[in-house]
């Protein structure tokens, strides 16, 4: 168990700087998820923590030790890769035991740990199979088992679920979270899937272009994104962003003015009848509807700008018809139009 501290961490490839001095403190036992678009430097950061990439500047500490110059094996971390990295020429048992390759444990203890990991991950019936005879989810479990037997100070995951189909991904999310609960080991987890981030993390770290934009518990980031990028990145469908201004403390989304209003589709409700006094009402022509069961996503056109709202399940508006949707004042995020930084909500 250990904390991981990044202190003004920098990575450059030649002249190109890809990580611009990031600071982060991962607490002991915390599950931290790095999210961000492709190329933002998530993997690079994780690989520097693992010791697979050299650090160009700043410091990485695991526990109290500065590990910048340490070999991966000396850092007492384990890593799980996107394509599993389990070896086709070895059985499941050998693959899991490979995590103990250099440890000086007795044979008995090694066996015990392998069996234990197999049991926890539901791999006991497959221990003597080759990876080729396993499903994608089982392979990923083998990779996790291999990391587990080491009993490392921290686990690093780099997009471990992105090769799995949606259903399996949902299941593995829960399993990994349960595993974290059970082992209590620090986890740093990289993904570009914001659902994974929201569902698994104790804390989300949103990255973009080698900077950390925001870090905090999932609901904090969801409720109070610091800028337009984070606001749109977390939550599906993405938050609607509408330029406008305020008049008498009310939002006016008419395209003019120095503000951007952000409204999550879940907070923009298609509704007939009277408008609450301080609510924002938007009216437009329906371009598409997506019935999801419990609710329906309604895409409509607001003076040339696409907007997504939510309608109750049984009230699906027709494409081409006019709809009107309302958002309560307290659900409207406000951003500075120039800097795209958040100005908070009026509550």
């Amino acid at each position: 168990m250990a904390t991981i501290t990044l202190d003004k961490l920098v990575k450059s490839y030649g002249k190109a700087r890809v990580i611009h001095g990031i600071d982060l403190e991962v607490r002991d036992g915390e599950f931290v998820v790095f999210v961000g678009p492709s190329g933002c430097g998530k993997s690079t950061t994780l690989r520097m923590i693992a010791g697979l990439e050299e650090v160009s500047g700043g410091e990485i500490r695991i526990g109290d030790n500065v590990v910048n110059e340490l070999d991966p094996k000396a850092r007492n971390i384990a890593m799980v890769f996107q394509n599993y990295a389990i070896y086709p020429h070895m059985t499941v048992r050998q693959n899991i035991a490979f995590g103990l390759y250099t440890t000086k444990l007795g044979k008995e203890e090694k066996n015990r740990r392998v069996e234990e990991a197999g049991r926890i991950l539901g791999l006991t019936p497959f221990l003597d199979r080759r990876p080729a005879a396993l499903s994608g989810g089982q392979r990923q479990r083998v990779a996790i088992g291999r990391a587990m037997v080491r009993e490392p100070a921290a686990f690093l995951f780099d997009e471990p679920l992105s090769n799995l189909d949606a259903q399996l991904r949902a299941q593995m999310r829960i399993e990994i979270k349960a595993l974290h609960h059970r082992l209590g080991t620090t986890i740093a987890y990289v993904t570009h899937d914001q659902v994974e981030a929201m569902t698994m993390a104790d804390r989300i770290v949103v990255m973009r272009d080698g900077h950390i934009l925001q870090s905090g518990p999932p609901m904090e980031i969801y409720d109070d994104p610091v800028d337009v990028f984070t606001a749109r990145f977390i939550g599906t469908p993405s938050m609607n962003i509408l330029p406008g201004r305020e008049a008498d403390g009310r939002a006016v989304a008419d395209g003019d003015g120095g503000l951007l209003f952000g409204i999550r589709p879940q907070d923009l409700l298609v509704r007939e009848g009277a408008v609450a006094a301080d609510a924002l009402e938007l009216t437009g022509t329906v371009t598409a509807v997506e019935p999801l069961g419990p609710e329906t996503l309604v895409h409509f056109d607001l003076a040339g700008q696409p907007v997504i709202a939510t309608a109750p399940a049984r009230a699906v508006p027709e494409v081409g018809s006019q709809v009107s949707a309302q958002a309560a004042r307290s659900e409207i995020h406000r951003f500075d139009r120039k800097t795209e930084r958040s100005l908070g909500r009026r509550r």
Binding site: K73, F81, A85
Partner: peptide, 14 residues
């Protein structure tokens, strides 16, 4: 051979 295979082994201490 994917680099991941080799890096996984590197982390395992080979």
């Amino acid at each position: 051979v994917p680099d991941d295979f080799l890096e996984a082994a590197r982390i395992d201490g080979l």
